[in-house]
Simulated assay, not measured.
Amino acid sequence: MPRTRLIRRRAGRPLLALLAAAALLLGAGLAPAGPAAAAPSPSAPDEGGSKQLRAALEAAAKGHIEAQARLDNSKRRQVALNGQLKQIELRLVELKAQVGEVAAHSYRVGRLTPVSALLASTDPDSFLQRAAELDVMAQRDSRRLRDLHEAQAEATQAKVALDAEVREQQKQLAILAKKKRDAEIALAKVSSGSSRGFSGGSGSAKPAPRNPDGSWPAESCSVNDPTPADGCITPRTLHMLQQAKAAGYKRYVSCHRSGGGGEHPKGRACDFSAASGGFENVSATGGDKAYGDSLASYLKNNASKLGVMYVIWYRQIWMPNTGWRSYSGGGSPAADHTNHVHVSMY
């Protein structure tokens, strides 16, 4: 080969390398994320189970959350009623003492009748003064008796209300027990029992808005889904996403899904990728597994603040009425949730 041609070929190699590197960098900056960031394959089981399982899990979890909210609200009312009853009882003691003084005075000196009081007057001015005093005494004694009767009626009403709250709490506890049984029955086909769960994840999320009685407000798929999935999500789901991001969980996440069942089409579920580059068709290990562990624990620790219905991660599912349970969704990383953390919202 001629020497001049060899020199030209060698001189061109650095230029080609530089052009290739530049193209790679530009492509990485402009391309969305490539196949790794795509959503789970449509052929994979949605949320790793059948439609019947998802419906049963949703019903059991929602029923538990609603019953727990009613129970907590009833306990708050009971505390308030107990405080009210104590105040009434203290007032009753004072009123009874006042009425007792009037009765004791009448017993000692005899009941002062209007006739005897007026006959004891020595002149017209004294007569008028006695008449005014009699009117004041009558009003005072009448008010004391009326206050006493009203306080007794209030005490009776407070006790009736307390009894009603006790019955309400017993009712909600029975519902909680039933919903736990429902969840265990639903999970029996995909779960082999309790599990240890995961470590990490703080409990410092900002609470989502609740109704005055402590229940969760009904929400529709009404706000823009900020994830690449595109579509709509509920305001509570958006709040959860924002809180998770603020806590440091910033890897790829996909929420809305137009097809299939479960909560994704309702804007009430999200899938958080364990890998930093997006969903991968392999089970997470090392740092990716630790990231998923921490995120799953964070969602569980903040469930009552955020409105989390259940969490699925790495062959385990957490529900508020069962705790962590083992979970088998079908064997693949997507179905068994070993490559992403799934969260369903109330």
Rank of each mutant, 00 (worst) to 15 (best):
L71A: 02
L95T: 07
Q78F: 12
N82H: 08
I88A: 15
K96V: 06
D72I: 05
I88D: 15
N82S: 12
G100S: 08
A67L: 03
R91I: 07
A69I: 02
L57Y: 02
I65T: 06
L57I: 02
L92Q: 14
K62S: 15
E89I: 10
G63R: 02
A56H: 04
R70I: 03
A60K: 04
R76L: 10
N73H: 09
V93E: 14
N73L: 03
I88S: 12
K96A: 11
K75C: 07
V99E: 15
S74V: 00
A97F: 14
L71P: 00
V99K: 15
L57F: 01
A59Y: 02
Q84R: 13
L92A: 08
L95C: 07
D72F: 07
E66N: 03
L85C: 01
A69H: 01
I88K: 08
L90E: 13
R91A: 14
Q84M: 13
I65N: 05
Q68K: 11
A80P: 01
A80L: 09
L92M: 14
A59R: 08
A97W: 11
A67V: 01
L92G: 10
E94P: 06
N73F: 06
V93T: 15
Q78V: 04
N73T: 06
A56D: 05
N73G: 10
K86W: 08
K86E: 09
L92Y: 09
D72G: 00
V93G: 07
K62Y: 13
Q78P: 03
E66C: 00
K96N: 13
A55D: 11
D72W: 04
E66I: 04
I88C: 10
Q98R: 13
R77W: 10
L85S: 05
S74Q: 00
A69K: 00
L95K: 04
L85E: 07
Q98L: 12
H64D: 11
A59Q: 05
N73Y: 05
E58K: 10
E58S: 12
G63Y: 02
R76S: 13
R70Y: 05
Q98V: 05
H64Q: 10
L92T: 08
G63E: 03
L95V: 11
K62L: 15
Q87C: 06
L90D: 14
H64A: 08
A97Y: 12
I88T: 15
Q84C: 07
Q87N: 13
A61N: 05
L95Y: 09
E94S: 11
Q78T: 07
G83N: 11
A61V: 13
H64K: 05
R70V: 06
E58W: 13
A56N: 06
A69D: 00
R70A: 11
N73Q: 09
V79E: 13
G100Q: 08
Q87R: 12
L53Q: 02
R76I: 02
K75V: 09
L53W: 08
R70P: 01
L90N: 14
E94W: 08
D72T: 09
E66V: 07
H64M: 06
Q98D: 11
A67D: 03
A97K: 14
L92P: 05
